[in-house]
Structures are given as C-alpha cells and as structure tokens.
Amino acid sequence: MARRGRVKLPETETGTILFNLDPIIIKDHYEIDYIHSYAQDSPFFEGLSKGELKGSKCTNCNYTYATPRGHCMNCGKPTQWFTLPNQGAIHTFTTCYFSGEVFLGETPYTLILAEFPGVDTLFMSRLIGADPAEVRIGMNVQAKFLRNSKFRVTDVYFVTAQDG
C-alpha cells in the first residue's frame, strides 16, 4: 500500500495554449467523427454514384419530389423512387460570396434551385462554370456527377446546358 503523501497523478509534457489571462482564454480543440446513416435516403446517394438523380413520387396522390423523401408531405403515404432527367431549368439562383466554413474556400459560387418538367418540387445544387452576371431564371442546366463519388450531395452539380 502506498504511503500517505506519496499518492499523486503523473505529470505530463502537454500544455494549454493561452491567449489571455484576464479573463483566461484558452484554445480548446473540438473535433468529432460521426458514424452517420443515410437510412431511407440511401438510394439517393447510391444514385449519385451511378450518375443518376433520384426523385420520389407519392404512391397515393402522385405528388413528385425533385428532392426525395420517404413519405409524402401532403398525404403522409409512402413514396417510390424514380429517376429524374439530367436536364432541368433554373427556378432561382444566388451567388454566395460568403459561406459556411466547409465551402468558404470555394466562394464565390452560385447556388441554383433546379426545376424539372412535371415535377412538383425543386432541387438545390451548385452551378459551375457560369459567370454570375449571366445566370438567368429559366436558363437550361444539366446535371453532372463526380466520377469518384464521395457519397455527398455535392457529388452532383449543374452546368449550363451548352456547357454540358
């Protein structure tokens, strides 16, 4: 048994980055990995890896979604998958000169909401290669896909139809 007075935590060589003393401000690193499931949305990301944009259609009221969902927001019934055309049109757009941290290095970039004939909802994506000053509502655009899929929604992006 250790004798009283000899019990102590071992000291380490690590330290804390200190910015200020009054008040004390330190650097506190924060990072975490998640094990994240796409669950019922998985076929959408699988589709991206195959160069296909997957939408969904309500099995009850036939409402169609360009951004797929497992159940209909109108009637609550299940939807079924279908493949969207790779060509659509710009419903609206914005050019971002500031963004969240992940995309900050890519600014300025243009986001569009793409519309597809006969489809009730829209799909948000990036428009690549177009001068922001020349982007217009109604412009025809074509979906393109990363060859090396990351299984992220950014695996798909759009270009103007003439660039496709």
Partner: peptide, 12 residues
C-alpha cells in the same frame, strides 16, 4: 450567419 438564400425569384 450565412444568410445567402436565393432571392432572385422574388423579383421574378
């Protein structure tokens, strides 16, 4: 706050 959302449609 990166409030850059598409508002071009507003004018349309």
């Amino acid at each position: 706050h990166d409030g850059a959302v598409p508002h071009a449609r507003v004018r349309n």
